[in-house]
Design a protein around this nucleic acid. Sequence first.
DNA 1: ATGGCGGCACAATGCCGA
Length: 255
Amino acid sequence: MKTIATWNVNSLKVRLPQVLQWLRENPVDILALQETKLINDKFPLSEIKEAGYHAAFNGQKTYNGVAILSRYPVVDITIKNPYYEDPQHRIISATVDGIRIICIYVPNGQSLDSEKYTYKLEWLDSLYKWVKDECKLYPKLILLGDYNIALEDRDVYNPTAWIGKNLVSPLERAALTQLQGLKLTDSFRMFEQKEKLFSWWDYRRMGFTLNKGMRIDYILLSPLLAAKCISCTIDRIPRSWKQPSDHAPVLATLD
DNA sequence: ATGGCGGCACAATGCCGA
């Protein structure tokens, strides 16, 4: 039995106490983090170790930054997609107890007429090329993180208002569908779920209080692991804490 | 309709997120 989680923490410096508390209450085996917003020199390794976790991290100043925490040693760490030269640190992958973990923080895109949207699509296209190779190398593979894409209308609180906009536009959704075409399964949709379960809520407009959210964080599983997956949930509780991240953790359990 | 909150930085406002 093994539990894997992903959480965009929106600054690990600010959220470290919450991450440690959450890990005490949810002692997952692997936790992928996004938006650490820390250079590697400032990664809180001693606190993480004290909590019983190994760590690999790929940070930068101010923006982005990703990490993998694990109860098992983290080996064969890479931080680059060979198909894309990217100054923004959005990827870390490693092998943990025989499972290849790829933690991603997909670019936001801002809006469809933005250069950042072009960057997002290029980034996703090159991600596909790379993950296609990785799937061949690693039959046990997990691609998880903040995708910044709401795949279906049921992943959006108000799909009508969002038609064609950034996060839901057809090209973004096609990019995520293409990844799933590598036989990577959205673990959340393997199971019957209640309606309007989201993983992100805007800080503004009382987003969380009104449950105006989106599901944009995913744990995708290769066939060997999907066959072992027995649950996938979103833990809304940390989003209700004081000074929360705007994202909630997503957890998948493998038998 | 707009911007609203929150984190960050060459620290006051501007950039960015989603």
